[in-house]
Write a protein that binds this DNA or RNA. Structure first.
Lengths: 225, 225
DNA sequence: GCATTTCTTTGCGTATGCATTATGGATTGT
DNA sequence: ACAATCCATAATGCATACGCAAAGAAATGC
């Protein structure tokens, strides 16, 4: 098995995971610059793996390497959110369609079903974090069920950017308790092999989520223009 | 891309451009392994920039870094092509929709129009390379007109993978002379501000192109399973 | 004062060297 | 002959060093 390091994984991998976490958590704030050498020191490694991680995260759209200005944590504007949501909406809708075409058994859809139940429960408990977690699980499982690995990896990548805005708004907006209706409809459409409904309903679901999030972001001026 | 210094772009950038070209042209064949040091020697630079380029190209899905086995040029299977086409179809259709919503003037759509004319001309001349080039220009311009940078960059990235299969099939399949009808309809829909038509027609256009390419690939067993 | 030039600093791009570790062939035992 | 083990090899992951070029500071001229 893979144990390249006594610790577990390579410094380069650790740098990716750590930096990603720091960006998503806001520890490295959007719009700020950081020298490669500083980051290296923080992570207790040399510049090389940090640089490699930065390259990867640059491809993921989380930061930007600007010669002599350090790595810049990319800010997210409402326009960015619209772009990102549009992409995710489109690809997830396709995922729902493909999943419905695949003819999964109820057993195979258990994870999806579970995520929906978890959301219901979280809503009852008014547990926002649990809800966010379950919602995430639903969407991750949906793209997995599409059977299209590229959708999965692109959505995962782009979702990182949504994540940053979501965590900023999570405690501001109401739990969209109605949204679980959509999830159930999408689930049923996949189970019953109805690609068109799966696609259209999920699409509409995402569209509304987008409107809601954008509205909140703009109202509260949460993201920098 | 950006070439601020035609002569003096960094080795790292050069490595990306060169390796990408070598992969797309088949100079580095799909499925083959190459040591970082060998590639470095070929490109007349040290391992460092090659490695950085490899990381970037790995994110782009063109190759894979396998410890102690060198960088592996990823093979493309028919399944991969289906995945990639599905993604591109979806995102370009969205691009067409957004472009139609944007209300461009005829002047602003000149590049798109030009690409269509070029395709017509190429078809008359039976110039396959010119046709492929113009077709590419059309699709690039389409996603640009969407105004969504993320669509542009994702499609560009994923198109690289289509490119490899296209160049392998270009001289086998017939020029789809009919396809330009689709292009014209999409163009007209964008010009006339008809998002729905733009989207649906482009979607159908892509769907057919996908079927055609897949069929040829499978018939000729062009890609490794 | 202000603009311009020179100088200094500093962060990056790249080369290089080394320790680590997987690999595959040789070796040994059955 | 075959399997298991050992070991030499070699490629990587990473640290480190260095030169260059850019950004800012200081100095100079007007």
């Amino acid at each position: 098995m893979n144990s390249p390091n006594p610790k577990g994984l390579s410094n380069s991998q650790r740098a990716i995971v750590e930096l990603r976490r720091m960006i998503l958590s806001g520890e490295l704030a959007a719009g700020t610059d950081h020298l490669e050498s500083e980051l290296a020191e923080q992570l207790n490694m040399s510049r090389t793996p940090v640089r490699e991680a930065a390259l990867t995260l640059e491809s993921a759209g989380l930061l930007e390497l600007r010669p002599r200005k350090g790595v810049r944590i990319l800010p997210i504007s409402p326009k960015d959110m619209r772009e990102v949501y549009d992409v995710v909406t489109e690809l997830e809708s396709l995922a729902a369609e493909r999943a419905a075409e695949a003819g999964y058994t109820q057993e195979e859809l258990r994870t999806l079903d579970l995520a929906i139940s978890d959301m219901d429960k979280a809503i009852e408990d008014r547990d926002l974090d649990a809800w966010a977690h379950a919602d995430d699980a639903f969407h991750v499982e949906l793209v997995r069920l599409s059977g299209n690995q590229r959708i999965a990896s692109i959505v995962a990548m782009v979702s990182d950017q949504i994540q940053r805005a979501k965590s900023a708004t999570l405690y501001i907006r109401p739990i969209p308790s109605k949204s679980n209706e959509d999830h159930r409809v999408v689930y049923a459409a996949i189970r019953d092999g109805d690609p068109k409904t799966a696609r259209e309903r999920h699409r509409e679901h995402r569209r509304q989520a987008k409107e809601l999030l954008i509205e909140i972001i703009e109202k509260h001026r949460l993201l920098r223009l």
